[in-house]
C-alpha cells in the first residue's frame, strides 16, 4: 500500500519559497490560475512558531485579528468542515477526526490538543468555527459571502496582514475593499475580477501569488501598529538591505463553498530576506529587473517607494560582484 500522507518538508527556505515573478515586469492583472492539486493547506517548518504567534495575537488583540457577522456562521461551519476534511486526509499523521453523527472529536497531534464539539452548534466550541479552525493552520482565512449578486467580506481571521485589517474591511463589498489599490480600482479591472470571482465553481479552486516588501521578518504588519513596523523602513541602507528587506509573498487561494454559496479566501504568507534570495541567482536577477521596471504608483501603494533606491543599489552591487567573479 502506498502511503499518501504528507509530512512537513524540512528543505531549506530557498528551495520551497513561492517566487512570484514569471517575467521581468510586474503590473496588476487577474493572474489567477487553476489550483492543482485543489487544496488549501501548506504546513511548513514554521508551523509551531506561527501558530504560537497567531494565538498570542488573538489573545491580546482579538478585535484587530478576528471579526464576523452572525449571518456568517453557516459559511464558517462549512469552512471548518472543509479544512478538517483536508487536514485529516492530507496529513493523517498530524490530525484526526472521530465522528459520531454530529458529535465530532478533532485531534491535533502536532500540538497534542483535542476538542470535542457538536457540528453546527456554535456554543459547543470555545470560539466561532472560523476562529477555532484558523488557530490550527498557518493560513489566514477570509469568508467572502455572495449575496444578491455581490461579494461581501463577512468574516475573517487575519493575523498576518500586509497592511490591511479585517476590523476595517468587515462588511465591505469587493470593490469597496479594493478601492485603495491604484489602477486596479479605477481601470475596470476590479469589476472584471469580481465578475470572475462571482462565477468560480466548487471543485475548481484558484490561486494567485501577491507580493510586497517588509523590513525585518515581521508577519503581523497591521495598519493599527504601523508606528511599530513602519518606522523600520527608515533604517534601510544599501549596506544592510540584504538582511533587513524581506520579499513577502502571499500564496492566496480561492474556493467556492457550495453550501453557503460563498467564497473562502486563504492567505499563506512567506517571508525571505534578500540575502537568502541571493542563493537563487535567477530569482535575484529577475527581482532586480522587476524593481527597476516597476512604476512608482505600485511601489508607493506597496509601501517601499521611500527605500526602493537603497534596494536597487544593494542589488546592483551584488549582481556586479557576481558578474565580476564569473568574468
Amino acid at each position: 500500500m502506498i502511503n499518501n500522507s504528507k509530512i512537513i518538508s524540512h528543505s531549506p527556505l530557498i528551495e520551497r519559497f513561492p517566487f512570484p515573478f514569471k517575467g521581468d515586469s510586474y503590473r496588476y492583472s487577474n493572474n489567477s490560475e487553476a489550483l492543482e492539486p485543489p487544496f488549501l493547506l501548506d504546513i511548513t517548518p514554521e508551523y509551531f512558531k506561527e501558530i504560537e504567534q497567531k494565538r498570542h495575537l488573538l489573545k491580546t488583540r482579538k478585535e484587530q485579528c478576528y471579526q464576523s457577522f452572525s449571518h456568517s456562521l453557516e459559511g464558517q461551519w462549512e469552512i471548518l468542515e472543509m479544512i478538517i476534511n483536508e487536514m485529516t486526509s492530507l496529513y493523517p499523521n498530524y490530525f484526526s477526526l472521530k465522528k459520531n453523527k454530529n458529535h465530532w472529536t478533532f485531534c491535533n497531534h502536532l500540538l497534542k490538543e483535542e476538542q470535542s464539539f457538536i457540528f453546527g452548534n456554535s456554543s459547543s466550541l470555545p470560539y466561532e468555527p472560523l476562529d477555532f479552525i484558523g488557530r490550527h493552520i498557518q493560513e489566514d482565512l477570509i469568508y467572502i459571502a455572495q449575496r444578491d449578486g455581490d461579494l461581501y467580506m463577512d468574516a475573517g481571521q487575519l493575523c498576518f496582514p500586509a497592511n490591511w485589517s479585517i476590523a476595517f474591511n468587515l462588511g465591505m463589498t469587493y470593490t469597496e475593499f479594493h478601492s485603495p489599490v491604484p489602477y486596479f480600482s479605477d481601470s475596470g479591472l476590479a469589476e472584471k475580477v469580481r465578475n470572475f470571482l462571482l462565477r468560480i465553481e466548487a471543485g475548481k479552486p484558484w490561486t494567485r501569488l501577491n507580493w510586497t516588501l517588509t523590513v525585518e521578518p515581521i508577519l503581523d504588519t497591521f495598519p493599527e501598529t504601523f508606528d511599530e513596523w513602519g518606522a523600520k523602513k527608515e533604517k534601510v541602507t544599501s549596506e544592510n538591505a540584504g538582511q533587513l528587506v524581506h520579499l513577502r509573498v502571499e500564496d492566496q487561494r480561492l474556493f467556492r463553498l457550495p453550501r453557503s454559496n460563498g467564497i473562502l479566501f486563504s492567505i499563506h504568507t512567506h517571508l525571505i530576506s534578500l540575502d537568502e534570495l541571493r542563493k537563487n541567482e535567477e530569482w535575484i536577477n529577475r527581482f532586480y529587473r522587476v524593481l527597476t521596471d516597476l512604476p512608482d504608483y505600485i511601489a508607493q501603494y506597496k509601501g517601499f517607494i521611500s527605500y526602493k533606491d537603497k534596494i536597487i543599489s544593494y542589488l546592483e552591487k551584488i549582481i556586479k560582484t557576481k558578474e565580476g567573479v564569473i568574468k
Binding site: H71, A145, Q146, R147, D148, E201, A202, G203, K204, R256, P258, N261
Partner: peptide
Amino acid sequence: ISYPKNHFPLSFR
C-alpha cells in the same frame, strides 16, 4: 456529475 453550482440562488436581503 459536476460539483453543485448555483445560478438560481435565494436572495439574502
